[in-house]
Amino acid sequence: MTTVEKLKAILVKDLNLEELTPGDIDENAPLFGEGLGLDSLDAVELVVVVQKHFGIDIQNMDEAKAAFQSVRSLASYIEGRLSGG
């Protein structure tokens, strides 16, 4: 499973996006605002989700904001961190 696919499944489950399936999520759509419709509370939850599932510690919201543009940008961020980048 690619990081993008894994992330979609995690988002649906951990952010309780009950009415969506992972396949419904467009990996290039914005996570916040008009895209997936997430908000500031989801953003901090996502920090914990990334910590819990990938062991990656995001220290502050500035760092998070850059990573949390879309599922794809988050996947790249995670892959970069995991490869020591």
Binding site: L41, D42, V44, E45, V48, Q51, K52, D57
Partner: peptide, 13 residues
């Protein structure tokens, strides 16, 4: 279960 750093902010709120 997952350590202090994995506390859920949504649950807390």
């Amino acid at each position: 279960s997952d350590g202090d750093i994995c506390a859920s902010p949504t649950y807390f709120a």
